[in-house]
Design a binder for these strands. Structure first.
Lengths: 253, 253
DNA sequence: CGAATAGTTGACTAACGTCAATACTAGTGG
DNA sequence: CCACTAGTATTGACGTTAGTCAACTATTCG
């Protein structure tokens, strides 16, 4: 993933894009599992993932942990630190990874000078929030099988958008333990669900690659909506009497 | 909750606060269960909840639903719509509620004129994201009992910050079904956990009121960190050999 | 080749959901 | 003030999903 492409995916163009990108002159390589920033830390840099996979993760006092976000090449890492001054979660490389870094003070200064850049980063912050909300829906209301199917759809979708998937195949270097952390499951159960997805002919997964064999059915299985970032009007819902009554939406006529 | 107080809680002061508040001249009353905005809708207004409780909620095609956020008096509703143009989720009154509204175009114009206001709203967007992340951790890695305890702590904490709690008592007009939607549980199970919290002498809950009887123990039970919005450095973790090895954090020395 | 990591399996358990009945509560109109 | 009603809370029996533990196998990588 080129830095320019990453910057354009923020919605920046022309001079804004060029000037913003020019701040990310330095690169840093992270070993697999290496922390880029720790939970609650102040970092003097803003980072964009250029290569490899990473995650945002929170660890509870007793060692349980939950992944809050999966970062693919081209994603901005830890955006909230830019406005809040601190990282809300640890950022950790899931594979050997490369990040481009800009000094936070430089970014701050540039935002003042070019408000459109601030606007774009604010928009990116909001999109990150929506993605988190989507995961929240999954953990709250979807079964393990659905969650996994949904995640496979999401990854393929995002990898395509980043130009990193060919047809229905992309790199997928995550372990089942990594998946378990994302999906709020145990790795044993993830394994069972992966096997079910394979048995039903929906995906192939292994050796660091994901192949979607039957995308319509996988999408259906995960309840995935491709446009959940640039959202269209609410999908037509089955008119369910109970539902309408419960929320006082029944047409009084 | 006065509008001024709400505006100050965004971090705005003096002229910025006054000018921003002046945009919220109109008010609207929502009946219990009434939708303020629908999922995916474009709204021409930015709203601040002045009175009552509200939620952001996503409904799946089959009727399952998950609450994404609980709004208390003083909270900005549906902030992401301001930068993304659409609501990512429905906003619904949980009680009879009052919102103050500003025309979105007016807010946009004011942000251009006074960048500090944009900064404050961006910060609020980021804080909303962190709150969503905290719920994600709960749904992914906390038991039903812990989640409920955590939510009680969160609500009391926020109600105090809004000046709406006296000592350890505050209004709490949510039904157990509402709680179930927030916590990703069934209402029957919520009921069982509420009873357990009561039996252990941690809370009193009923008739629209919440009383925390033993705050230290409730905080402990929920793993609640009061500062999870203005985060301090990572809490000291038990040094756990397994954990360190698993994540390659073991000191190589 | 060997060590470490990752994936797989089965047996068992715990947490939580579902269903269906029953009790309580608050608001309503008589 | 009382009966009525709708919404809410509670209970028990039972089913299902997912977690835990402990082994074992397959891969990867040095």
């Amino acid at each position: 993933m080129s830095l320019d492409r990453a910057v354009r995916s923020l919605g920046l163009q022309d001079t804004d894009a060029a000037v913003f990108a020019s701040l990310f002159a330095s690169q840093r390589t992270l070993a697999k599992s290496e922390l880029l920033t720790d939970e609650g830390a102040r970092s003097p840099f803003v980072s964009i993932l250029v290569d490899g996979f990473a995650q945002a993760v929170r660890v509870l006092a007793d060692g349980r942990q939950q992944c809050l976000a999966l970062f693919l090449p081209g994603d901005c890492l830890d955006l909230t630190a830019l406005v809040l001054g601190r990282s809300s979660a640890a950022t950790r490389a899931l594979t050997l990874a490369t990040v481009a870094q800009a000094r936070m003070t430089d970014v701050q200064a540039l935002i003042t000078e070019r408000p459109q850049i601030g606007r774009a980063l604010w928009r990116a912050t909001a999109l990150r929030g929506i993605a988190t909300e989507e995961w929240l829906v999954g953990l709250g209301r979807r079964s393990a099988f659905e969650r996994l199917a949904h995640l496979m759809c999401e990854v393929m979708h995002r990898m395509r958008a980043a130009g990193l998937a060919s047809h229905a195949v992309c790199d997928f270097p995550l372990t089942q333990t990594d998946l378990a952390d994302m999906l709020g499951l145990s790795c044993v159960h993830v394994n069972r669900m992966v096997q079910q997805l394979r048995a039903e002919g929906l995906i192939q997964l292994g050796r660091g690659r994901l192949t979607i064999c039957d995308e319509p059915r996988l999408t259906e299985a995960g309840g995935f909506q491709a446009d959940y970032l640039g959202r269209s009007p609410p999908p037509a819902r089955k008119t369910d009497e109970t539902f309408l009554l419960r929320y006082g939406l029944a047409d009084p006529a």
